[in-house]
């Protein structure tokens, strides 16, 4: 039993390494997304001479980092949709068990989510540095990792968990689509109908949750969603394996 466990762990580790290598380009794309949005944040501002303080006056729009994050959520969703049927993985990682594949995939999604959380937060500092070097003495700092590490940690966890749940959702949808198309349509309809009906409340919950300090309460539904997706995929794949 113990040797089985060790062998399985080794299998997952090996598979995970293969998958990281296969998806290394995805990490590179994330950097590109962040760089583009940093440039857009700087470039989209109103650039004009300040008539009041004598310095260059650049007005920044706050929504750019939000858009960057939403964009990265779409990006992880796209990756997770592609992940189970990635050709490179299918050819280079044959012979591994379904369970090992699932574990490695979710582990990879977790790593990507954590990367999104961390790099999105730190890229703000990169932006600050660039602006500061350009503008000089015109930035009033808010919370940073240095003066409020607990806020940074809360931000990091929230962003990573939300990204992870979006990734898991994409993965589960893909698996469901391949397992049974009618069931997929039925489930999507069941989920979409109440979302459509309660869209105002949902939007309110998201907004209030994001801007409140109840990080745990906000994250719990997303963690629940992630676990639900993981469980769903595991059940479906297990069933397919038994059938096969």
């Amino acid at each position: 039993m113990l040797t089985d466990d060790i062998a399985h762990r080794g299998e997952v580790k090996e598979l995970f390494t293969i998958k990281v290598e296969s998806h290394i380009r995805a990490f590179f794309h994330l950097i590109l997304i962040e760089l583009v949005f940093i440039c857009l944040t700087i470039g989209n501002g109103t650039i004009a001479d300040s008539d009041s303080v004598g310095n260059l006056n650049i007005t920044f729009i706050f929504s750019m980092p939000v858009i960057a994050y939403v964009f990265s959520l779409f990006w992880i969703f796209a990756i997770s949709l592609k992940m189970p049927s990635n050709e490179v993985i299918n050819t280079s990682a044959k012979g591994f068990s379904v369970r090992a594949h699932l574990l490695a995939d979710f582990l990879l999604l977790l790593v990507i989510s954590l990367t999104i959380g961390l790099t999105m937060l730190l890229s703000n500092y990169l932006e600050i540095m660039l602006v500061d070097l350009l503008k000089q003495d015109s930035i009033v700092m808010g919370y940073t990792i240095w003066n409020a590490p607990s806020v940074f940690l809360a931000n990091f966890l929230t962003m990573s968990i939300v990204a992870f749940s979006v990734g898991c959702l994409g993965y589960a949808l893909h698996a469901l689509y391949h397992a049974s198309l009618p069931l997929f349509i039925l489930l999507v309809a069941i989920v979409l109908l109440p979302i459509n009906y309660y869209i105002d409340s949902l939007y309110g919950f998201l907004r209030n949750g994001i801007f409140s300090q109840e990080a745990l309460l906000f994250n719990l539904p997303f963690l629940g969603l992630s676990l639900l997706c993981i469980g769903l995929v595991y059940l479906m794949r297990n069933k397919q394996e038994v059938k096969g």
Partner: peptide, 11 residues
């Protein structure tokens, strides 16, 4: 609780 807690930029 987002990355967007200000840095406040302004002149």
């Amino acid at each position: 609780l987002f990355p967007f807690n200000p840095p406040y930029f302004k002149g």
